[in-house]
Design a binder for these strands. Sequence first.
DNA 1: GTGAAAGCGCTAACAT
DNA 2: ATGTTAGCGCTTTCAC
Lengths: 350, 350
Amino acid sequence: MARKPPTMRDVAVRAGVSPATVSNVLGGRKRVDGALVERVRKAAADLDYQIDRVASQLRSGKTRVVSVLVPSLENPFFTSLIAALERAVRSEGYDIIIASGNDDDAVERARMAALLSWRPAGVVVLPSSDRFAARQMIEDSQVPCVVVDRVAAEHGGDAVTVDNREAAALAARHFLEIGHSRILVVASTLDLANIRERCVGIAETYRGAGLEPPEVLEVGLSFDEVGERIERRLAEDERPTGVVALTNFATMAVIAAFKRLGIAVPDEISLIGFDDYAWMRVSTPSITAIGQPIAGMAEAAWERLSARIDGDDSPPRTITLDCRLEVRQSVLSIGPPLRKLADLQRTNSL
Amino acid sequence: MARKPPTMRDVAVRAGVSPATVSNVLGGRKRVDGALVERVRKAAADLDYQIDRVASQLRSGKTRVVSVLVPSLENPFFTSLIAALERAVRSEGYDIIIASGNDDDAVERARMAALLSWRPAGVVVLPSSDRFAARQMIEDSQVPCVVVDRVAAEHGGDAVTVDNREAAALAARHFLEIGHSRILVVASTLDLANIRERCVGIAETYRGAGLEPPEVLEVGLSFDEVGERIERRLAEDERPTGVVALTNFATMAVIAAFKRLGIAVPDEISLIGFDDYAWMRVSTPSITAIGQPIAGMAEAAWERLSARIDGDDSPPRTITLDCRLEVRQSVLSIGPPLRKLADLQRTNSL
DNA sequence: GTGAAAGCGCTAACAT
DNA sequence: ATGTTAGCGCTTTCAC
């Protein structure tokens, strides 16, 4: 099969120059005489020559690859991040190799080993858990690395994250402004630091207003299980007047549960979701949600990573971006603002 | 920076054997004495040795990479396909390099050039348009290739697609069964063969029932433009009783337009969407939709591709999978079945 | 400014 | 069964 592709040597012969000159022309790193440049270009075009990145990389030791490890490829938050990262990275001639850690530490390690065996110029990793199973391997390999989204508090390297505490506080304040004193927080899993931060943001805000911190319901990651737990909770007597869902899956699961239970949104219960997707806009009612700056996160990650690749050895930095609340129709005002201390709290948290 | 990672030579020295033996042990392709195997394994573990795939690949000429080119990474249909492909591929030790063609022929070509420069073992491509801009490059490179989803009728190679005509006919029959004689078909763009096929499936079915083929509204790809065109059409007097949206974006856009126009689904207009996503289940009303077998498509693609990689040179095959109609709440019965000839038609199309 | 030669880390022949 | 040698296609000295 596969007739061999032309090599640089073939191009050199056709152009009547040495391989080194071809390399210099194509790589554009040494000055070459104009006439020769033309000849080489023409020869390369004639042969449909394409450089062999593998050989190039082996010799130069420099690669134009960024490895990306995400917890899952089924979650649009992660895939949108990849899309944004791909745009940023390819604009500088890098390719990305991706792998999914499958929400599993062992898989994360295995996949990272595979990614590292490409000797990438850098890696972007969204750990599958706070344990960040692949961390040691990455440190050992000395490859520049930026951790995104799931950043453990004690993480020592470069990181990009959102202000999860403040993001959730945005939702809490919104509820307080319109009289919701008893809300329910639906979290996927409290094993993740960013989810815990979101809980804290809500609790702080409520406490700041002189109220009890809201109840937190941990529902797990599997869609069916989530629905079941939410339904069980909402079947109880003391129903909340509002719900904050802390992830996009949780948001969807909550909506599904409301539907099965025949609970009207926002008339019976108000809802604030997490992550801002198109379907939330077209849903009936449209869903008020906390949106994460996905493109901004990707750009920040690449900015840091490419600086490191270029040799920046300044101290590690954590870049924290802000989320915003997209107010839509899924939240109903049920009373006057409950903000005795809320404003103070807001000032504190800034 | 980056202290150099250990090489095979380092391992060989530490284990007191030759590099070739290390290669044989780690690659597991020649019998090696048990004691030596142990020594090598230990040495490799001690040094945290990781094989350099770049060097390995350069020498052996064999790569364990599959390149995947999709039109967009923002569309969940494509990312789900990638997720499924990643699972299939990594179970056989391959890595995936992805790129987005950005719905643009020129970008598709540029990205494919980059992907091919890795000399991948195979490529999976979802063309950005029917022109399949990257086709020639792939053929020239002689790399095994499977085309997925957007398969032009005249395509000569291996391909995996769904029976688009029958998929759309499923929706048409559903509408006919419950008395909808006047429906509107909302297509993203008729430039894509699979979309045209879907239109044909609906037209055939209606004609088979002795009715006029439904009107087709082409709305483009940009979300805002889509909404505007739909709204303009629905503001007219002759409203359809039902709408079939032929892509997931079109489905979302139609829902958004209905909402802005205050049109109730399914009471005023019934809706059948395309692609089956979780949000369609939780939407109110839940959306009846045609679901594509994404995982099945990915598995079929890998099955074909891995056969080709292993040297299969049987004639090219097109694998066609069936879609299914998920009946939910967005469709209302408005009369008796209109199926005089519909059943005959169904038999014909099989 | 250009070319000759060495060699990146590995694996495939071949020799032992 | 193991070691030795050569060389994959490129880039990088280092001569010229």
